[in-house]
Simulated assay, not measured.
Amino acid sequence: MFTTRPTLQGTFGMVSSTHWLASQSAMAVLEDGGNAYDAAVAAGFVLHVVEPHLNGPAGDLPVILAPAGGDVRVLCGQGPAPGGATIEHYRSLGLELVPGTGPLAAAVPGAFDAWMLLLRDHGTKSLAQVLRYAIGYAEDGHAPVERVGQTVESVRALFETEWTSSADVYLPGGRAPAPGELFRNPALAATWRRLTAEAEATGGDDRVAQIEAARDIWRTGFIAEALIRQSDRPTLDTSGSRHTGTLTAADLAGWSATYETPATYEWNGWTLCKAAGWSQGPVLLQQLALLPPVPELPAYGSEEYVHLLTEGCKLAMADREAWYGDAAGVPLAALLSEPYNTARRALVGEKASYELRPGSPDGRAPVLGAHAT
């Protein structure tokens, strides 16, 4: 059978990402003697440059890593809400919902610190060696994918009136990035160059000391200062009003990425690992728990098979809406238990359900937000 997606094989190494320049950069790291973790970090920072509409260093980063001969671990790069982001604070502003845009929606940035921990603990390359690819594409330019320009156009008015520093980068001369045209982000390149220079000045020739210095610069140095300045700037958000954020210097300085044990489920001889209930990863585990034993599964690809998987997905997603959030309060053991999912499986009828039907693990009553559908 002809396919445009052939099976790829190799004996040296292989990289897969959502953008060819990130994959190419990661492969260059491997060919330069770096390991898989070095390559992943380099690719991650390139993705910040070439897919800025999808991710960035101030976003979040859940990582599942399996070191050779070691235990599977999860690296949590999901920052919490700032300390001042309380229900009382939002209601004092006349808000019943957190605005979808603007500084009030911001969590503590988590991605950068998680990348640094991954590089420090499992990589071999220096900060400058993994950042040079992102710096190169930001400084010298790259041909952006179509969605970058489309996304910029969708927020043009906001950039031009509220996020003017973003307009300087993404609307040079008033034009959004266009496919096939060279696009540069000199501000980001300058940021990483300054970060690298300051980290090297502090850490000297010690690779780990440089990475630790970079983490400190992000949390307490010039980058932290810029994040707080932006948070303190009244900005129009989806509420229709201007608000300042709740992010403080203490929030940035007091948080770091952490390692944890993954959520797991045994299925058909395999152990599947996901991040815990602060992510939506356990949804997949519960979808497997909702299936009957493998010998009882309908024929692969049949109508009955697709129906069972689809309805199980709905039930798992309903439990996500009711139960996921702060990891300490998520009853994952009960949600993945055999008795609970056997009872949930009985809800799958012959017809598709249009209801949101969360369950009651451990007998607890589910709580859904008013806007959950």
Rank of each mutant, 00 (worst) to 15 (best):
M1D: 03
F2P: 12
G10P: 08
F12A: 15
G13T: 08
T18Y: 06
Q24W: 02
V46C: 11
P52C: 09
L61K: 12
V63N: 00
I64S: 01
I64G: 01
A66C: 08
L75G: 00
C76N: 15
A85Y: 06
T86E: 12
H89M: 11
R91N: 05
L97H: 10
P103A: 01
P103G: 02
V108Q: 07
P109N: 14
F112H: 06
W115N: 09
D121N: 03
K125D: 10
K125G: 05
K125E: 07
L131D: 11
Y133W: 14
D140V: 03
H142T: 06
V145Q: 13
Q150K: 15
Q150C: 05
E153H: 02
E153F: 00
T161M: 04
D168T: 10
P172R: 08
G173C: 11
G173W: 06
G174R: 09
R175P: 01
A176I: 05
A178W: 03
P179A: 11
A187F: 05
A189Q: 12
A189G: 15
T191K: 13
E200S: 07
E200V: 11
D206K: 02
D206R: 03
I211D: 05
A213Y: 08
A224R: 13
E225Q: 15
Q230R: 08
D232H: 09
P234D: 12
S239K: 02
T246E: 15
S256R: 12
A257P: 04
Y259N: 00
A275V: 04
A276N: 09
A276S: 11
A276R: 12
G281D: 07
L285S: 03
L291A: 13
P292T: 04
P293K: 07
E304R: 03
L308E: 03
L309Y: 05
T310I: 01
T310P: 02
K314W: 07
E321S: 10
A322H: 08
D326F: 00
G329D: 14
A333Q: 12
S337V: 05
E338F: 01
K351Q: 14
E355I: 04
S360M: 06
P361V: 07
D362Q: 14
L368G: 12
